[in-house]
Simulated scan of single mutants.
Amino acid sequence: MLQYTIRRLFSLIPVMCIVSIIVFMIIHLTPGNPAHLILGEDASEESIKQLEEQLGLDQPIVMQYVNWVKDIVTGDFGQSVYSSEPVLDIILGRLGPTFSITIVSIIMILVISIPIAIAAVWKRNTLIDPLFISISLLGVSIPEFWFAMLLVLGFAVSIPLFPVAGYIPMADGIFQWLYHLILPSFVLAAVEIGLVARMLRDGMLESVNQDYIRTARAKGVKESIVLMKHVFSNALIPTTTVIGAMVAGLLGGTVIIETMFTIPGMGQLLVDSIYRRDYPIIQGVILFIAVVYVIVNLLVDLLYTFLDPRIRYD
């Protein structure tokens, strides 16, 4: 396991190099002079030249990339053009709201999708199976922004059960923190509940008629124990893969939700930086999300050995 982990960590280096090149080129190959776009049409040539020197835009494109990567390796993501604060400090200051929404969304997904999948398999020969799956898949078909507007109009305006917008840190009270996260987290969760429930259900249906399951039933084991101990555990491997990709996807999916609910997370930071043309922050946020995505995939691969003892990487 240790050797495999070390190999995987080294294999992340070329992946992150490719990701860094893509992020860098997206920003620096956009039409127009970045310094001119940041300062506006009325900016003087002197101020544009000064900003180019500050951002290193006066150097060849290859040297710009090399210097940017060297700074990132040392933990220097540059400074914000808008506020002159270190980019890394700004990103770390926005992690709390984004991770809060992601964690609450994951809990909602697991709490709702797992019972739906188990009930669908348990009652697989009745109308409950297609009914549950049809309801769970509604979230996949509904656009996030439209669903968020419906929830706000229904449960924050017409029936004022939840706040319309805003965020309260956990340090100010866990109940207020959770109270402000329920609506935005449920919007994110609704999109993924159907996918996780469907994947878990399909995995369980593949195992429910296997020989070892028939043997367990022949020994008199209760159906509920068979489903939970044998069928459910064997369906966790493909479901865990989906959940791993979903975790990283939720971090990127908070862009719309944080903007709509006025939550000061990384999503709103990215949108504000795009409007301000704050290129160092845009690069830093995109690269940070990519790093999280790669690390989550590595952790999912390592988690397989705990879910299935038959898997051994060494």
Rank of each mutant, 00 (worst) to 15 (best):
I133R: 10
I281Q: 02
V191G: 01
I128F: 08
S185C: 05
A117M: 05
P238A: 04
N209S: 10
Q64D: 03
L57Q: 03
T241H: 00
F24M: 12
A189V: 05
V23Y: 05
S224Y: 09
D71P: 00
H230Y: 08
M266Y: 02
I274L: 12
K222L: 03
Q283P: 04
E258N: 03
R310I: 14
P115K: 10
L181S: 13
S136F: 10
I106S: 03
M63C: 00
M108I: 14
L287G: 09
N125S: 14
I109K: 02
L227G: 07
N234C: 10
L9W: 05
I286W: 06
G78S: 05
P264G: 01
E41N: 09
A43Y: 02
A171T: 15
I91D: 01
V296T: 12
E206D: 15
L55W: 01
W68R: 02
G249I: 07
D202H: 04
G166K: 07
G96L: 07
K123E: 03
Y313H: 13
A290Q: 07
F24Q: 13
V255T: 07
D211P: 06
S158N: 12
G173R: 11
V247A: 06
S113H: 08
F162L: 13
T241R: 00
V196M: 04
L51N: 03
P86R: 07
V242H: 04
G75F: 04
V255R: 03
V121R: 01
R124M: 05
V242Y: 04
D272A: 08
I109D: 00
V191W: 14
M108E: 11
I274S: 08
V292N: 11
A245E: 09
I263S: 05
E206M: 12
A156P: 03
I103S: 09
F162I: 07
L161Y: 15
L251T: 01
L269M: 11
R198L: 10
K70D: 01
K70L: 09
L299T: 11
F155Y: 07
I61G: 01
I311V: 15
M260V: 12
L299Q: 09
P34T: 11
M149Q: 14
Y279G: 00
R8T: 10
I112T: 12
L161S: 10
E52M: 13
I286D: 02
E85M: 08
A156E: 05
G194M: 09
I18V: 15
S136K: 07
M149I: 12
V247H: 04
R310P: 14
M16T: 12
V23R: 01
L269S: 01
P169G: 07
I237V: 11
D129N: 12
T30N: 11
I103R: 02
Y65W: 08
G284F: 00
P86C: 03
D129M: 07
